[in-house]
């Protein structure tokens, strides 16, 4: 055994030692590449958004309606504002240049700057999604852990049946049922619509937030907990969990340290997808509760042909998608040693 090293390429030396000094450089490169990809994605999205909004038809005709033929002066004024005498391409680059420098343009319908119009709704929606997320993430994990613990026994079956049923409901049905249960028919403890005082925020009265948040949580949690349960079960069947048990590690530690740590990564990915989905999907829920967020505003803007606001909101929703997924990928890699060391070495 002693002379092995000289005879054979010793199997004990065949693995390169991990992590050199250039680990940081490798990370920087990785992040730079991912950011570059994110920018590229957003740029492609901007083209699609611009083309789609341009295809909506002549916004001036839509905004002025019957006044269009009666008021040529106003038409000329608006045409100048959106630069419709220029080509589509140069309008696109004007708009893109504005986006990059933070200038979202001026709303045609109201004549006010877009950034001023959307800042309130963006904050409101962000708050709603944030509240939904901090309730939904722990809730989903707890449900998944309980379910995995009782795998295929009665509590698990019951939980899975309920989750599947809830997952099958469209969000407005969930919302309507909650309104009937908690606001109008059965218990009348919560307001069914959002009433906001002028200049205030919806969350000034916590009761207002409960129903929209609950609807989003019920809408999204079933997916997340089902995925987390599945990956937990897979991990529980793995040989390292078996070894941990045979090593005499208490079951609670086995679950927490050995199983959950490895099951969390698929969970992160599905949470990211759902959060990004929420950012674009709050439309129905906000409309239902008359919650003054971007969903409600988007609906209004499309109805009013307020092209600039539609464009700005679309880009914000796209950015949330890209950023949330970027963060999820980063977290997944940080939590998966194999992937982490692959980058830094």
């Amino acid at each position: 055994m002693t002379d092995l090293g000289t005879l054979v390429a010793s199997p004990l030396e065949e693995v390169a030692p991990p992590r050199g000094q250039h680990g940081a450089a490798a990370w920087a490169l990785w992040i730079a590449r991912r950011l570059g990809l994110a920018v590229l994605t957003l740029w492609l999205v901007s083209i699609l958004v611009f083309l789609a909004t341009a295809a909506l038809g002549d916004p001036i005709r839509a905004i002025l309606g019957r006044d269009y033929n009666a008021n040529p002066g106003r038409v000329a004024e608006l045409e100048k504002l959106i630069g419709s005498d220029q080509s589509l391409i140069s309008r696109y680059f004007d708009w893109l240049g504005g986006l990059v420098t933070g200038d979202l343009g001026t709303s045609l319908a109201s004549g006010r700057p877009v950034s001023e119009l959307i800042s309130g709704p963006v904050q409101n929606s962000a708050m709603l999604v944030f509240l939904a997320a901090i309730v939904m993430i722990p809730l989903s994990f707890i449900i998944a852990m309980i379910s995995a613990h009782y795998r295929r026994r009665r509590p698990d079956t019951i939980i899975q049946t309920i989750l599947l049923a809830v997952a099958g409901l469209p969000e407005f049905v969930i919302g309507v049922l909650l309104i009937a249960l908690l606001a109008t028919t059965v218990f009348k403890v919560l307001p069914p619509v959002t009433l906001v005082t002028l200049g205030g925020h919806p969350w000034d009265n916590w009761k207002v937030m409960v129903l929209p948040t609950l609807t989003l949580v019920l809408w999204v949690s079933p997916y997340v907990s089902r995925i987390v349960r599945a990956s937990l079960l897979e991990v529980i069947d793995s040989e390292y969990v078996e070894l941990a048990r045979l090593k005499g590690i208490p079951e609670s530690v086995v679950m927490r340290k050995h199983a959950l740590l490895n099951a969390i990564v698929p969970g992160i990915q599905v949470i990211a997808l759902q959060l990004a989905f929420l950012a674009g999907g709050v439309v129905v829920v906000e409309t239902l509760f008359a919650y003054p967020g971007i969903g409600l505003q988007l609906v209004d803007a499309v109805r009013n042909h307020d092209v600039q606001v539609v464009q700005a909101l679309s880009m914000i929703i796209a950015s949330v998608y890209v950023v949330v997924n970027l963060i999820a990928d980063l977290l997944s890699i940080l939590l998966t040693p194999r992937a982490r060391t692959a980058i830094s070495s």
């Binding site: 793995s238 040989e239 070894l243 048990r245 090593k247 005499g248 340290k257 740590l261 998966t336 040693p337």
Partner: peptide, 24 residues
């Protein structure tokens, strides 16, 4: 039993590449 496992009777698994926890 848990007390006996590991301390008095230890187990060496078949395929340690999959039996060691990849995250620890």
């Amino acid at each position: 039993v848990r007390q006996v496992r590991g301390e008095e009777i230890a187990y060496v698994p078949q395929d340690p590449a999959s039996a060691l926890n990849p995250a620890i």
